[in-house]
Simulated scan of single mutants.
Amino acid sequence: MAEELNSFPQTLTIAGTDSGGGAGVMADLKTMQERHVFSTAVIVAVTAQNTLGVQDFMALPKKLIDEQFASLADDLAIKACKTGMLADAEHVEIVVDNLKRYDFGPLIVDPVMIAKGGAALLADDAIEVVKRDLLPLATIVTPNLPEAERLTAMSIKTADDMKQAAKVLQATGAKNVMIKGGHGDTDKVSDYVLLEDGHSFWLSSPRVDTVRTHGTGDTLSSAMTAEIAKGHDIETAIRTAKDFVEAAIRHTIQVGHGHGPLNHWAYGEEHQQS
């Protein structure tokens, strides 16, 4: 009976909140809902944030984070999980310890370091901890270009640089790597994917001229998490997530005065109409 009750695909986001609703846990939950899985959350930090930037944030105490993990493990059957904003070295370690303690399925690591408005969301001393302790647990790691540069200590300017950086990240223990090209300056956004079996490919889409891209990384990694929880293979999950984000950026909504949020229901509307 317990197995039957927990048969519906369930996911977990481990991250910080965004009071503005566009990124962080809020974007994760919206995305997972749109991908038809039941989403849960472990809150690591709380931010005061809107489309103009991050005004303040506070990381939660270890005891409360540990209890959130334990509570989910006691009751639910999480099939895949993801990490987002983890604040600092101490909180990265707290999360790593819990991920080793409980089996929440494949892990997608979105190495959130800097908000769209420029605010630092990961302390400098935490980057080495992410590389040493978190990436070896990752089924997929999804850095953008600046994050990939920080994690690899490389300057990434060309396609060959992206390929090399992916190999460096895979050498940390991350099984599959997607380096996102959204911070580039070309007419197309080109992401490079290196899979565990050595297969690699590029995903390209036209660059949309908009500042309404707040929460893109959160949305992408959440969509991957949902697809994996539903039983899809890694490549299918990555390709579906890319399509989901592309639609969410292309069909913009007008919210806020700064880096506005994505339209999280756009992909579903597109496919209903087609």
Rank of each mutant, 00 (worst) to 15 (best):
V208Y: 03
K163A: 12
T186K: 14
S221T: 14
T216N: 07
A174H: 02
K167P: 11
S222R: 02
T210F: 02
R207Q: 05
D218M: 01
V168R: 09
S205E: 14
T213K: 00
D209I: 06
D209Q: 13
E227M: 12
T216M: 12
K163T: 05
G184A: 15
A171M: 08
A174Y: 07
A174V: 06
T213A: 06
L169R: 08
Q170E: 10
S200P: 11
A171G: 09
K180R: 07
L195Q: 12
G181S: 06
D187H: 12
H183T: 07
V189H: 00
D218C: 15
D187V: 00
N176T: 13
K180G: 02
M162S: 09
E196S: 11
G184Q: 07
G217S: 07
D185S: 13
T216V: 05
T216G: 00
T216Y: 06
R212E: 01
V168T: 07
L195Y: 08
S190K: 13
D185F: 05
V168L: 09
K167F: 09
V211N: 14
P206I: 10
A223Q: 04
D209Y: 03
D209V: 10
G184F: 09
T213P: 05
D209E: 13
W202Y: 14
T213W: 05
V168E: 08
A174R: 12
G215T: 09
K188L: 13
T219Q: 01
V177P: 07
Y192L: 07
K167Q: 15
E227I: 01
F201K: 12
T172Q: 05
T210N: 06
F201Q: 12
K180M: 03
K180L: 04
A223D: 09
A226I: 10
S204W: 01
M162C: 07
G217V: 04
W202D: 13
V193H: 05
L194H: 02
Q164F: 12
I179A: 04
I179T: 01
L203C: 08
V168Q: 10
D191F: 02
T216L: 11
S200T: 13
H199P: 08
T216F: 10
T172H: 08
G182A: 03
V211L: 15
T210K: 05
W202A: 03
L169E: 01
D209W: 08
A166W: 03
R207L: 04
V177L: 10
L194W: 02
H214P: 02
G182T: 05
M178G: 04
W202C: 07
G181M: 06
T172D: 03
H199Y: 11
G215F: 03
M224Y: 03
Q164G: 08
D209K: 12
E227N: 15
Q164T: 12
L203D: 00
